[in-house]
Write a protein that binds this DNA or RNA. Structure first.
Lengths: 218, 218
DNA sequence: CTATGTCTTGATGTTAACATTCGGACATCG
DNA sequence: CGATGTCCGAATGTTAACATCAAGACATAG
């Protein structure tokens, strides 16, 4: 009669989060290409919602770095330059080092959500879905760190990383798609067995690999 | 006839940012204590603005971690626990290491904004103002790093750090107020002369000092 | 006396109309 | 012909009214 901890508090979300989700997916799907304008009236008409929730959703996406808005000049989908990629890479390095140091050697109870993502990676061939799982893996890592603010900092760049991966992988580079699965498998075993030092080194190499691969290609 | 770089692009801000600034100051001033509710109608009446901009401002403050809102349950000023302080401390360590590594040894042109803050510290005795300058010093550091996303990540915790300092220093601990000025002076000289390693070590000690001082006191 | 159900109240969430602003097209003047 | 000035349209910013929701007071049944 006292299921403490078994039930998460029930949250009800408003229209704004709903709209934000739809827009995020649309941007990932390429409906709105980088640089394309996101007009409030258009979106509110398409989503059958008033402009209020749309504005709130755009604020959320701006915080996530997916769009950029200027005063009275509308919002457009972020265009990621090489300099942006470098910023994402270096900041992610700092964040992930902290995350790995807190997760490495943790009990299986905390690692199992990460393991589950790796499992799902095994039977996935679609590049688009694979990128989603790649991000999901790191989401699970940050979640396992048990550090709310670290997680929020990651959420501040995670969508940009996602978008960057998608745009650089568009119908190309199946070199990535083939190796990601096993590479993350290695990362997981490093988290399970190795100490912090070797684990962070492996994560470093992982990011470096992806970064150089995707930054030099186009 | 071509003053490139001398003039920054003129930005015009809306009511929402104005409201956000006022609310931030009000929270710092203690008008709204931690845990106190921030009612939209109240605020819009007091600020003579409609609820739209107020809602936007509250979203901004929520992103900064100063307030927390739940669906249909209103927003309250964040109450910082010991665990929160630990989170702020560790995340700040990760961010500031990256920032210092990018700023250490930089030219005087980039360091001068930081130096100016240190100068202003010298002739300041008011504790409230000193805390503001403390934060301003680190703002300048992150700005000098020339890393937009790093700066944004800092902005995600900077207001909480500010609030934490203020609430723990309330009419006490002039041990802090006396030493901050010279301590930051040392940090600046470290940025100027020393290499990355010693500079980061000094910044580490600086944060550690403040953290242990303020976490054990109350 | 406890537990359930209803109601009221005071807030937030949503909407649609109004006001303001930016950028470009057009006309005008040197 | 080039530069300046004016106007217009289309978008965003703001407002106030409407709809919805959650928490507590109260009444009621067991």
């Amino acid at each position: 009669m006292d299921p403490r901890g078994e039930l998460k508090p029930a949250r009800r979300r408003g229209l704004a989060s709903e709209v934000a989700d739809r827009l995020r997916e649309a941007i990932y799907a390429g409906v709105y290409a980088p640089g394309a304008p996101l007009r409030e009236v258009e979106l509110s008409a398409a989503l059958e919602v008033s402009r209020g929730p749309v504005r709130e959703a755009l604020l959320v996406l701006e915080r996530e770095g997916l769009v950029q808005s200027r005063w009275h000049r509308g919002t457009t989908v972020t265009r990621l330059t090489a300099a942006d990629a470098a910023e994402l890479h270096s900041l992610r390095g700092a964040l992930e080092e902290l995350a790995v140091s807190r997760v490495a050697g943790a009990g299986e109870a905390r690692l199992s959500p990460i393991a589950e993502v790796v499992t799902r990676m095994a039977d996935t061939s679609d590049a688009h879905a694979m990128v989603g799982l790649d991000i999901a893996f790191h989401d699970a890592l940050y979640a396992a760190a048990g550090h709310r603010r670290l997680e929020q900092a990651w959420q501040g760049i995670r969508c940009q990383v996602h978008l960057f991966l998608l745009t650089r992988l568009d119908a190309a580079d199946d070199d990535y798609t083939r190796h990601v699965s096993e590479e993350h498998q290695e990362l997981l075993t490093a988290l399970r067995t190795a100490d912090t030092k070797t684990a962070t080194a492996l994560f470093d190499r992982h990011r470096e690999h992806a970064y150089t691969l995707l930054s030099t290609t186009p």
